[in-house]
């Protein structure tokens, strides 16, 4: 079946950090996101904790409920099981790491309830 995952999750994809440095997607570290957000005028990093993982509308989809930021706002996203999230201190993680590795050659851990993912929000929001 076709996979509509963005191309930048493919192993070897070149990612530009906010300071201009280029890294491969598989080499990104938690600090790269934190430092990039620090010098961004618009974006800031939030910690989004995985609260629930449920089946999605289609067989290959899951609905992930996050508790976002200090306000613990509840946000649900529906993604394909192979969609990788970046877990603080751990790196790329997906609901089906075998499939992520198979499709994108990107090494992944299993995304679990309680994992804290890197997410973004707007700096200007008050």
């Amino acid at each position: 079946s076709p996979v509509a995952l963005p191309p930048f999750f493919m192993r070897g994809s070149i990612i530009q950090l906010a300071d201009g440095e280029l890294k491969r997607v598989e080499d990104l570290k938690t600090e790269d996101f934190i430092q990039s957000a620090e010098i961004s005028s618009e974006l800031k990093i939030d910690s989004s904790t995985v609260e629930r993982i449920d089946s999605g509308q289609s067989p290959n989809a899951v609905v992930i409920q996050f508790s976002v930021g200090e306000l613990k706002a509840q946000v649900c996203v529906e993604v394909l099981v192979e969609y990788p999230f970046f877990v603080f201190g751990q790196g790329w993680s997906s609901c089906c790491p075998d499939r992520t590795t198979q499709l994108f050659e990107l090494s992944c851990a299993k995304l679990c309830v309680g994992d804290v993912c890197v997410s973004l929000t707007l700096r200007g929001l008050r």
Binding site: Q16, D32, V77, S119, L125
Partner: peptide
Amino acid sequence: VPVFPWHSLVPFLAPTQSD
């Protein structure tokens, strides 16, 4: 070779906020 911005890789999870 395409170069992708760092912020494409992590989700934008904006909590609904009221002013």
